[in-house]
Amino acid sequence: MAHATATIGADRYRTDIVAGGHALTADEPAALGGGDTGPAPFDLLLAALGACTAITLRMYAEKKGWPLASLDIDLTLSGPPEARRIARTIRPVGLDAAQAAKLADIAERTSVTLTLKSGLPIATTLI
Rank of each mutant, 00 (worst) to 15 (best):
H3C: 03
T89P: 00
T125G: 13
T56Y: 12
Y60E: 09
L45A: 15
A98W: 05
L114A: 09
S78L: 00
L120W: 05
A54F: 01
D36K: 02
G79W: 09
K102D: 11
A30M: 02
I8K: 13
P121Y: 02
A26Q: 04
L44K: 02
M1G: 13
L103N: 03
K102G: 00
G34C: 05
I73Y: 03
D96E: 14
E62M: 08
T53N: 11
K117V: 06
R88V: 11
P39M: 12
L95M: 06
T7G: 10
D11S: 11
D27V: 03
H3R: 10
D16L: 09
P80D: 14
D74L: 06
L116K: 00
S111A: 15
L24G: 03
G119L: 07
I122Q: 11
A107T: 04
K102N: 10
I106S: 03
G119E: 03
E28N: 09
L57K: 05
G9H: 11
D27R: 01
T124A: 10
D74N: 13
I55E: 07
L114Q: 15
R109P: 00
L44A: 11
A87W: 00
D43A: 15
G9S: 11
W66M: 06
S78K: 06
G50A: 03
G94L: 05
P121R: 10
C52D: 01
L120S: 14
A100N: 06
L45C: 13
D16S: 13
K64F: 04
A104Q: 08
L103T: 06
T110E: 01
E108S: 11
